[in-house]
């Protein structure tokens, strides 16, 4: 791949997904896009670039963009966000005016193959005494249709169900199907998946009480991050929560969110955080003003930011997978993809 070809691919990806690739990520382009080239019966990335430049290459462009943004995910990844969900966010929701309408909308902005939204759905099921009669909607979006199809099927390999999922929950909520494990239909039905580019207008998704957008911002340039957070702030109720990845922050990027004390990766809206309120661990204060009455499934409306082309990855980031060991102690490939 020549420098010009690399630049072409980099620019195309930035424009279509917001993904920013530094020169050091050249290897990533090669490892992710060579399989696409081979699938198209091409022998090099140079041939792929020639094909991408043709006027009728929209399908191929989509394929290339999706190949670059697919990342592995796993259940209860990083744990802390799920502990915060259970110990801070849900208690705050229960103490809010939502207790009257008993509705909650959650957006997983980088749903990938579904482990994050399903982990939340399992947590909600486990909190049946408090949430059993609530109408809770979890929306999982991703740029890649391929990962969303996998998420919808709810079928996971043995490796996938062992990464972060406590065994007690695995036997409780999964059924073995051949060599795979399928998540129970009662959990699957709690999540709605939608193909969505984070560069698009968020208004169509409605208003949310909680937004999970973990390990996504790290792939964007500062102006795109700022734009994304500004638009998310408009989709979040005033007493809602934003959850970012452990390596991400709003500092220097957005002044609309404020870190929740002693809760890594958890943010509240500035206006609500500044006010006084419920005795919820980590929060220390109640929402400043009554939350807009929650309307299930809404897509409410408020004025949508008009920022132009902002962001759009949409998949959970990966971490390098160690070589697997078979029952005979033989190293095996895990096949996990990575983007960092």
């Amino acid at each position: 791949m020549t420098p010009a070809e690399f630049d072409y691919l980099r620019d195309m990806l930035k424009q279509r997904s917001g993904l920013v690739l530094g020169d050091e990520k050249r290897y990533l382009l090669e490892s992710r896009l060579m399989p696409v080239a081979r699938e198209e019966s091409m022998e090099s990335l140079s041939e792929l670039v020639v094909a991408l430049k043709k006027a009728d290459s929209e399908d191929l462009r989509n394929k290339v963009t999706q190949a670059m943004t697919i990342n592995e995910s796993f259940f209860y990844r990083d744990k802390t966000p799920f502990e915060n969900f259970k110990n801070i966010m849900i208690p705050a929701m229960l103490a809010s005016p939502r207790a009257a309408s008993r509705t909650l909308r959650i957006w997983c902005a980088a749903a990938s193959t579904g482990q994050e939204p399903y982990s939340l759905a399992i947590e909600i099921k486990e909190m049946a005494p408090q949430l059993g009669n609530w109408n809770i909607e979890i929306i999982g979006t991703d740029l890649s249709e391929e990962v969303l199809e996998k998420a919808k099927a709810g079928l996971f390999s043995q490796f996938e169900v062992q990464r972060g999922l406590p065994i007690q929950l695995m036997v409780k909520y999964f059924q073995q199907t051949g060599s795979l494990w399928q998540i129970d239909s009662s959990i699957r039905s709690m999540v709605t998946y939608k193909h969505f580019n984070l560069l698009e207008d968020y208004t169509q998704l409605g208003t949310f009480d909680i937004i999970f957008c973990r390990n996504v911002l790290i792939y964007f340039d500062p102006p795109t991050k700022t734009d994304m957070l500004a638009r998310m702030a408009k989709r979040l109720r005033p007493d809602g929560f934003l959850v970012l990845g452990a390596a991400e922050t709003v500092i220097g990027i957005s002044d609309e969110f404020k870190p929740v004390t002693d809760a890594r990766g958890l943010y509240a809206m500035q206006v609500a955080a500044a006010a006084s309120a419920p005795a919820v661990p980590g929060l220390g204060s109640t929402p400043a003003k009554p939350a807009t009455p929650a309307v299930p499934g809404i897509g409410a409306s408020a004025a949508q930011p008009t920022t132009p082309a902002a962001s759009g990855l949409g998949t959970a980031a990966a971490k390098p997978a160690s070589p697997a060991v078979s029952s005979l102690g033989t190293p095996m490939a895990t096949g996990a993809s990575k983007l960092a």
Binding site: F159, Q162, A321, S322, P323, M332
Partner: peptide, 11 residues
């Protein structure tokens, strides 16, 4: 807990 072989360090 329960690990199903094959396993790796992450698991």
């Amino acid at each position: 807990e329960y690990i199903m072989k094959p396993f790796d360090k992450d698991i």
